[in-house]
Amino acid sequence: MTLIGKRVVQIKIKSEGDVFHELWKANPHKIPEASPTSIQKCQAHEGEAGTVGSILFWNYIHDDKECVAKTLIHDIDEEKKSVSFKILEGDLLELYKTFEIKVHVDTDGSDNLVTWTVEYEKLSPNVPDPDTLMDFYTKLTKDIETHHLKN
């Protein structure tokens, strides 16, 4: 059994893809406003949101459990509308040796597609693949979409 894995989920959204990308890139502190049942808090720990190398601290609910994560903004690609985060500390590292998250938005007129990709290395073969996290990202995306369509 391999310890290294990758999961991908794609979600069509009706809200503007550029707004979604900008939220993750430069305004992650506003995400709890859009999805308070998933993300309770996001604050800059070091550096400034929207810049590669900045570190963010997250409080979130996953599988009905309060969790935390400290993430490094690893990469921002304006052309591809993607932001990549690397987990530095937190609950996920109790199960995974490494965990990286990429959120990418494809925009084509009114058709927008959000793609979440996670790449990880498990600490042991007994650790489950992060399928429930992919459900978490789907719900989070739908919450953000609903929030933006209302406003």
Rank of each mutant, 00 (worst) to 15 (best):
83 V>E: 01
103 V>E: 00
103 V>S: 02
43 Q>E: 15
31 I>R: 04
81 K>W: 05
19 V>H: 13
22 E>N: 13
19 V>N: 12
52 V>A: 05
57 F>T: 06
104 H>M: 01
14 K>A: 13
89 E>C: 06
131 D>V: 09
22 E>Y: 07
65 K>M: 04
110 S>I: 14
11 I>W: 08
86 K>V: 08
78 E>W: 06
128 P>F: 01
142 K>F: 04
50 G>Q: 04
55 I>E: 09
128 P>Y: 02
136 F>T: 05
129 D>L: 00
10 Q>G: 07
122 K>E: 08
64 D>P: 06
97 K>S: 14
49 A>D: 11
137 Y>R: 01
137 Y>L: 02
21 H>G: 01
27 N>H: 15
3 L>R: 15
144 I>D: 03
71 T>C: 09
134 M>C: 08
117 T>D: 00
36 P>N: 10
133 L>C: 02
87 I>C: 14
99 F>M: 03
59 N>Q: 10
82 S>A: 14
139 K>Q: 13
3 L>D: 14
150 K>T: 15
102 K>N: 07
57 F>E: 11
80 K>Q: 14
124 S>A: 05
5 G>N: 14
106 D>W: 01
19 V>M: 04
20 F>L: 12
28 P>G: 07
119 E>V: 08
68 V>L: 09
67 C>M: 10
119 E>W: 01
131 D>W: 08
90 G>N: 08
127 V>A: 02
12 K>A: 06
91 D>C: 00
82 S>K: 12
71 T>N: 12
59 N>R: 03
44 A>V: 09
49 A>C: 09
137 Y>K: 01
70 K>Q: 12
134 M>R: 04
44 A>F: 04
116 W>N: 02
93 L>Y: 15
129 D>Q: 05
34 A>Q: 07
100 E>W: 09
5 G>Q: 11
17 G>C: 09
138 T>L: 00
115 T>W: 00
80 K>F: 09
114 V>W: 00
82 S>L: 09
106 D>F: 02
129 D>E: 11
12 K>T: 13
55 I>R: 14
51 T>K: 11
85 F>M: 06
146 T>F: 03
105 V>S: 06
121 E>C: 05
70 K>M: 07
42 C>H: 05
74 H>P: 04
119 E>T: 09
67 C>N: 15
65 K>N: 14
9 V>G: 05
125 P>E: 08
70 K>V: 13
131 D>Y: 13
102 K>C: 04
130 P>C: 00
135 D>H: 08
90 G>P: 11
114 V>Y: 00
32 P>N: 08
148 H>Q: 12
11 I>A: 10
21 H>S: 06
136 F>C: 01
56 L>Q: 12
96 Y>P: 10
149 L>C: 07
54 S>V: 03
34 A>V: 04
2 T>K: 07
25 K>D: 03
75 D>T: 08
75 D>W: 03
79 E>D: 08
41 K>Y: 09
59 N>E: 13
105 V>Q: 05
94 E>K: 15
67 C>S: 14
